[in-house]
Design a protein around this nucleic acid. Structure first.
Lengths: 342, 342
DNA sequence: AAATTGAACTAAAAGGTTTTCGGAAACGTA
DNA sequence: TACGTTTCCGAAAACCTTTTAGTTCAATTT
């Protein structure tokens, strides 16, 4: 509370105390040449004594750069925005960049409002985090600063987007199932209006085709929820009694599937192997057995997007949609099949 | 991309185009007096044509206020920081405030670094979001701006903190169990080094004492996890065969408890009622039966904290730890007991 | 007709920093 | 002493906006 209402200490105060001009203070504090060692020392001591912090507003006004980026999200609450946000904040943390967080909550008006606000604050760049991997309207047109899209790509091919490789992630999962000896593989996933669901189904199709195998039944599209996982399990266990593996489009679906499969007396993973998606640890590390899951590496994606934004601020653009690889986190739910009860 | 590298348009450009002085432009755009209607119109058109956005840096430098608050968290990834953050961002969204997000990731050095950065950017205030409800070291000492602590309170009684009322939340839960006819109530919760666990246990004790009842066994402290919920269920069902209700310290514990209780043949909620804590919808809306849970109203807490920060910026301080009420979200897991299988 | 008023506008200052350029002092050389 | 060189420091401009204190000019009053 001390000094709450007192005027902030400026470079002039430091100059007075040190008995030099403000120019010298500036040079001394910024490590510039042409300042005698003992003068610099005096200045440093004065600055320390007054706990002087240069006014970034003034500096930024002068340089025209705010050393700030805007992070525009439609769904900060979502599980996907946050890791991206963290990765970005991470990448910035090293330098002197700051992140301004704006949540548009899916409202175009609010988004416009935030963009105007950020521009008037002269942010150096913008990261737009989608709430799904579905393409979203571009905002880059006529903006005076570079924009990078993360998770959900822009619908304009000239923009820069970073998205997880859902097709590749699904292929990883199926490949792992095949490698551990599974042959009758089903796929349960989310709604068809999610590009993520479509892409993952395509990955399954592609990898199975490559192995010359048929998929066990059509892909079951539903919701991303545990409930749908349970429901799908009922259907699948009935329709495909010789099923030996299920690849689920989300960890929640997988958790639901496993719950019902256990109840129906299937041994996991001995009878049926299960793979989830997202590697959402609160779930995948709590299921029984522990859930093998595709990790979309979102934090790294956010980090990369932020680094790319830096490059773009420096004028180096690499337009297009960049897909980032996923990794498979192997846990107990895909141990090789066998008669032992695990 | 258009004009990416061209100098930003300033008020002078607008003045030239409109054929007036910059002072007139300022007054016209800010709705001040003494500007003729047609002049104002001309200015507005010129500004529109150039898509002029006043440089907030310059304005802030002049007024000495940045219209920005810093949000300092140790755990943005956590389930608790995010809602608070959203509530705060929400409260600010109405005005022209912006939020700068900084994640210290529990590192004191990093926290100091962020504080210096925020101060040099002349933020108008700070919100510190704890990662648990345990008190945390105060940072307010000698800071030139007001600080409000949310979720985790400051250890300095002169600071302003907003925390959820864990004791009251637990009392709500137990009262509901009593009201629906339960009498043998057990409590399973997290580790003893969490104040939240201690407080909730205290709430249970207090409410049961008020009703003149004994708690069914000692409070079981463990982890916040589903696994611990399962483990505790094994113990409890053995040790307290006539148990008719369990209040769990988290939704995860509750989910684990329910899973095992079902496996052991208990009917939920007919035989045993279960209440969770946090009302984390991804869990509480997916359990079978749907989980009654104490909702700590975190978003509202964040909102209130932000509003209070506004007040503090205007010089109105109300020091102390303010506990915010929880609410009980009643779902199927606490339907009255009975012989029917539900 | 001269003086007063009021409206509409402008010049200039202020805000805190960095940077450029010029000046002064100290020193060495002739 | 006169001159050139080096080293260090300070004055002032620039960044862009808002606000204050005028200034101009026309309309109104005396």
């Amino acid at each position: 509370m001390a000094g709450r209402r007192s005027r902030a200490v400026t470079i002039s105060d430091v100059a007075s105390l040190a008995g030099v001009s403000i120019a010298t203070v500036s040079k001394a504090l910024n490590g510039k040449d042409n300042v005698r060692a003992d003068t610099r020392q005096r200045v440093l001591e004065a600055a320390e004594q007054l706990s002087f912090r240069p006014n970034a507003l003034a500096k930024n006004l002068l340089t025209g750069q705010s050393r700030t980026v805007g992070l525009l999200t439609s769904d900060s609450a979502g599980r996907f925005g946050i890791p991206v946000l963290l990765g970005a904040e991470n990448a910035f943390g090293a330098g002197e960049m700051a992140v301004m967080l704006c949540d548009a909550r899916g409202d175009v008006i609010r988004e416009q409002h935030h963009i105007r606000m950020l521009l008037s604050r002269r942010v150096d760049g913008l990261i737009v985090v989608g709430e799904s991997t579905n393409p979203r309207p571009s905002i880059s047109r006529d903006l005076p600063v570079p924009v990078v899209y993360a998770y959900g790509p822009s619908d304009d091919a000239d923009d820069v987007s970073f998205v997880p490789d859902d097709v590749g992630g699904a292929m990883l999962a199926v490949r792992h199932l095949l490698a551990t000896g599974r042959r009758r593989i089903a796929h349960v996933t989310g709604p068809t209006d999610y590009k993520a669901a479509i892409d993952r189904a395509e990955g399954v199709r592609r990898e199975l085709a490559e192995a010359g195998l048929e998929q066990a039944g059509e892909t079951l599209f539903g919701a991303w929820s545990q409930r749908w996982g349970r429901q799908a399990a009922e259907m699948l266990l009935m329709a495909q009694p010789d099923l030996d593996a299920v690849f689920c489009g989300s960890d929640q679906i997988a958790a639901g599937f496993m719950e019902t499969a256990r109840e129906r007396g299937r041994r996991l993973p001995a009878d049926i192997a299960v793979i989830g998606y997202d590697n959402w640890e609160v779930l995948s590390a709590e299921t029984r057995p522990l859930l093998t899951s595709v990790d979309p590496n979102l934090e790294r994606l956010g980090h990369t997007a932020a680094q790319h934004l830096f490059a773009a601020i420096d004028g180096k653009v690499a337009p297009g949609i960049h897909t980032m690889p996923c990794r498979l986190v192997i846990r107990d739910s895909t141990a090789p099949p066998g008669p032992s009860p695990g």
